[in-house]
Design a protein around this nucleic acid. Structure first.
Length: 572
DNA sequence: GCCGTTTTCGGCCCGACTGTTTTCAGTCG
């Protein structure tokens, strides 16, 4: 039995939820939450850290006590302290706090006064009108809870960044037309470019807050106004996405933007630094006593904290503050650094655009090169290419390349990694390619060891260059196949192979944490769209965003290089 | 329960909105 980081994080999270409901010391609760975040984000398995005898107390938010509890979980798969809490406070109560308006205090009361343990209990009690007489409850809250339980069942939790962009674009246009609105910015996890977005956080600069929030709630896609005041309002759109609006005056633009961008952990860390310097930070400015000492720009916030500017994508309290203090922040890659796309399909396999159309679209993007990497023969449903068809495609690429000036089609193939770790095409044809993109398309249910060995064995092939969509996950649809990414990253490093950041907004595979781990291990990455049409080439920016979240610089990425330089990296 | 150029105790980020508690607790971001 192996205990994963996610298991430990989940146990700590549940511990925090239940202690919170019990009314425990809130800082103790927070300690468990922070520890859960630390463990959840750790790129290496805690079990292997313990095995190597590395002290867990050096991890942020892990002290003597929690280190001991982590060891207990890894050894036994259980946490006795949690079981003791669960004996008093059933763990099903934690789920109730997902209902808006129900926090730990009210859930505690529901359990103590009415013996409610589950969502079903809660619904029955609300229907029977038993909630309204509890202290801190009332008829209005009771009705709202019933309403939310019904909605809770049907609404989706998070939206892909690409979908969020559509809502953000329309809302921004609407709010920009509001009288007196001088600036409209989408902040929050959207601005940090997370792969999914739970809600949209909109910041509007306007001197007349009440008029602006009045205008906001008249937006025609609003299903429900959750709250509304002179400076802030929350609504739910008909699509189910929640939108939080905040209005501040111009002189508070920087501090409000920083506050509303988050992340929460980053904001807390910055405020703590400022507090140590005798300063106070809120949405309206940086203050020394009553005196305002900054607030117009985000730079004001960082300067006051003695830091250089930190890009939104890095604001997760994962070391960016320390790096900024030390002047060691990365110079993040930008879309302008990208010189070509290393993974794209044509209508020869399952793409929808022709070779020529794809080439023209890539040239229109200003690229130096575009790879043609159709599927190999094993992927029959995608009309994968056998050696003969691939050979004909390579001849066709030669003919087209003769016509191009300052642009080149690269000869590649998305070669299937077969169940035994061999590649789907013989070396005789692979050697004609400029490089390969190799991928797993079946056997997702292999256990982690077998899957890892399968891929490592494929990497042993001298024609293996880039591992495409390394975990196979589809965001919100299916988790990645089980594999030991620590070993895959190390295996790629020693063999001179590379990993892909698949830029498709439903994949974004590798994720931010693993990007950074690969970088630190010295494994370079390809940012590739896996485009199946000319339009698909436009997804590159999502991949760049994910890379930026992973602290990636232009030099860490293959396709920021001219072809000549790249070619040398592909020769093994 | 963590943490320390204010070190082993005493702190721990800050403000808006809601409902009903007429002065604020609970929740949320």
């Amino acid at each position: 039995m192996s205990v994963h980081n996610a298991d430990i994080a989940a146990l700590f999270q549940r511990m925090a939820d239940l202690l919170d409901i019990e009314g425990a010391n809130p800082f103790r609760v927070r300690a468990y939450r922070r520890a859960a975040a630390t463990i959840g984000e750790l790129p290496e398995s805690v079990a292997s850290l313990i095995e190597r005898g590395e002290p867990l107390e050096t991890l942020p938010a892990i002290g003597d006590d929690l280190a001991e509890k982590i060891v207990e979980i890894v050894r036994t798969g259980r946490l006795k302290a949690l079981e003791e809490v669960e004996a008093r406070t059933p763990s099903t109560l934690a789920a109730l706090t997902a209902i808006p308006g129900l926090g730990p205090k009210r859930v505690h009361a529901l359990h103590q006064e009415l013996g409610i343990r589950t969502l079903a209990d809660l619904e029955a009690a609300a229907k029977a009108g038993r909630l309204r007489d509890l202290p801190k409850f009332g008829a209005a809250i009771e009705a709202k809870i019933l309403d939310d339980i019904a909605k809770h069942r049907t609404t989706e939790k998070r939206f892909s960044i690409a979908l969020a962009e559509e809502f953000a674009r329309d809302l921004t246009r609407y709010l920009s037309a509001a009288p007196g609105a001088t600036r409209v910015v989408v902040a929050g996890s959207y601005r940090r470019r997370r792969e999914t977005v739970g809600d949209l956080d909109l910041l509007v600069i306007c001197d007349d807050g009440p008029a602006l929030t009045d205008y906001f709630v008249r937006y025609d896609e609003i299903a429900e106004v959750v709250s509304k005041g002179p400076t802030r309002s929350t609504v739910i759109l008909t699509s189910g996405i929640q939108v939080d609006l905040r209005v501040v005056p111009e002189e508070s633009y920087g501090t409000a933007l920083h506050y509303f961008t988050g992340s929460k952990a980053h904001s807390i860390a910055i405020r703590t630094i400022l507090q140590d310097k005798g300063l106070k930070l809120n949405e309206y400015g940086v203050f020394k006593g009553k005196e305002r000492v900054g607030g117009e720009s985000e730079e004001d916030v960082f300067r006051a904290a003695g830091l250089g500017y930190i890009e939104p994508e890095l604001r997760e309290d994962r070391g960016e503050i320390e790096a900024s203090k030390a002047g060691m922040l990365p110079k993040l890659i930008t879309l302008a650094d990208i010189r070509g796309d290393l993974h794209a399909h044509t209508d020869a396999s399952d793409g929808r655009s022709s070779l020529e159309e794809m080439a023209e679209a890539a040239r229109a993007l200003g690229y130096d090169y575009l790879a043609v990497s159709d599927h190999s023969q094993h992927v029959i449903v995608a009309n994968g290419l056998d050696p003969e068809r691939l050979a004909r495609q390579l001849d066709e690429i030669d003919r087209l390349n003769d016509r191009f000036d300052g642009f080149r089609l690269l000869k590649s193939c998305e070669v299937d990694i077969l169940a035994d770790g061999t590649l789907d095409l013989p070396d005789s044809i692979l050697k004609r390619l400029d490089y390969t993109v190799c991928a797993v398309h079946f056997g997702f249910d292999f256990d982690s060891d077998r899957q890892t060995e399968r891929i490592l064995k494929a990497m042993d092939n001298r024609y293996f260059n880039i591992l495409a969509h390394p975990t196979g996950r589809l965001i919100g649809q299916r988790p990645g196949y089980g594999l030991d990414l620590d070993r895959i990253i190390e295996g790629a490093r020693v063999r001179g192979c590379f990993l892909e950041i698949n830029a498709h907004p439903m994949r974004l595979d590798l994720d931010d944490i693993r990007c950074r781990q690969a970088k630190e291990a010295g494994v370079r990455l390809a940012i590739s769209t896996d485009a199946h049409s000319t339009v698909g080439l436009g997804a590159m920016r999502y991949g760049v965003d994910q890379a930026r979240r992973g602290w990636i610089e232009a030099g860490d990425v293959l396709n920021t290089r001219p072809w000549k330089e790249l070619k040398a990296l592909f020769d093994r």
